[in-house]
Nucleic acid binder design. Sequence first.
DNA 1: GGCATACAGTTAGGCAGCTAACGATAATTG
DNA 2: CAATTATCGTTAGCTGCCTAACTGTATGCC
Lengths: 199, 199
Amino acid sequence: MPLLLLKDLPRYECLLESAKEFPDLDPSAAEAYLHLLRAGDDAFGVSERNLDEHGISQGRFCVLMLLWRRVHPRAADLPGAAGAEAGPRTPAELAAGANVTRATMTGLIDTLERDGFVKREPDPVDRRMMSVRLTPKADQFLREFLPGHFRTTAKLIGVLTEAERKTLVRLLTKISTQAAAMVSPSTASALIEPVAHAV
Amino acid sequence: MPLLLLKDLPRYECLLESAKEFPDLDPSAAEAYLHLLRAGDDAFGVSERNLDEHGISQGRFCVLMLLWRRVHPRAADLPGAAGAEAGPRTPAELAAGANVTRATMTGLIDTLERDGFVKREPDPVDRRMMSVRLTPKADQFLREFLPGHFRTTAKLIGVLTEAERKTLVRLLTKISTQAAAMVSPSTASALIEPVAHAV
DNA sequence: GGCATACAGTTAGGCAGCTAACGATAATTG
DNA sequence: CAATTATCGTTAGCTGCCTAACTGTATGCC
């Protein structure tokens, strides 16, 4: 459970009362926001518990899955480009895929290599780069681990009907899109931003 | 952004194809699960960005809010008990409220005290305990910070209608409840568990 | 009353994020 | 071709999370 948060969310009446003191507080928005953080944390915790039992962390698992894509490319991953590379290979590509810095990826690869899950190899062409590859041990681990992981996920989401899942995905996508717009408003105004810099 | 995760979620067709290899993979469940983690992370990131600009971390903010409840108790917090204490006071209570270990809380209070936001005082009755209290500086900080924080939340959730918010909270609550049941199934079977141990 | 147990807070050590800076190498550009 | 610029991986040092073990204090049980 990585993100610490209030164990018990404030009740709606409490939010209503706080709104009297803080006019900027939108009770229904705050309620939805807090429930989102809590549910995300809960879901994360369920999967992390699964991973812990197998002695692997969320971060390491993420790296393994990115490399797994390379070993087992799906046709859907390569819609048009025929000879395109299937997945990330270098620490920099892995860092981009996992949304962490290169420095963090160095540490993750360090421990994964120490535990025998990946191997570093120097790139023969560009001598700045390294190639990271899964070992057979990692391949075997994933084949044993993933089914249970998928069952856990299915059990967690199993409380929702198919229609509810679609609705949930739709609403969450709206929020993610809005979050992206709030963090970097340049996404929509990519044509204007450079001008602003030029001026 | 605390929980690292795939930057780009796999597409639905890709999940469908993977399901051929892994029968335990429920594509719609996996899709909903991944979107939940991503949206939770996105929402978390938006608020964390807000906090960072004010030089305070999510964990510290959580502690301040727990202590704030004590300074400004709401009537809704005290439904029946008249003279009951309003909020957490000791490091152990704060740790329970923030869902972290006591050791972690020690570190958080250390830095908060160093920065002048809280003060430790020994408990006059039970000499094992400490009392943690907000300083006027923290009170002023929160009064200045919270309105912006609430506006950010309202803007993020603003993409949803009131009806959508209600739906979202309902679905997320279902998932959180299921997660709790999966992590500690003893909640419902507290009478059976001890027997199992006795045998 | 004396001793085992339980509990509060801290400390020590590990992992996983981050930023900033570095050396080595490649690419660009005058 | 030479020099600047950019990129790759790594290192060092920070924060914040964890577990395990420790000290001091209260409590419970003969």
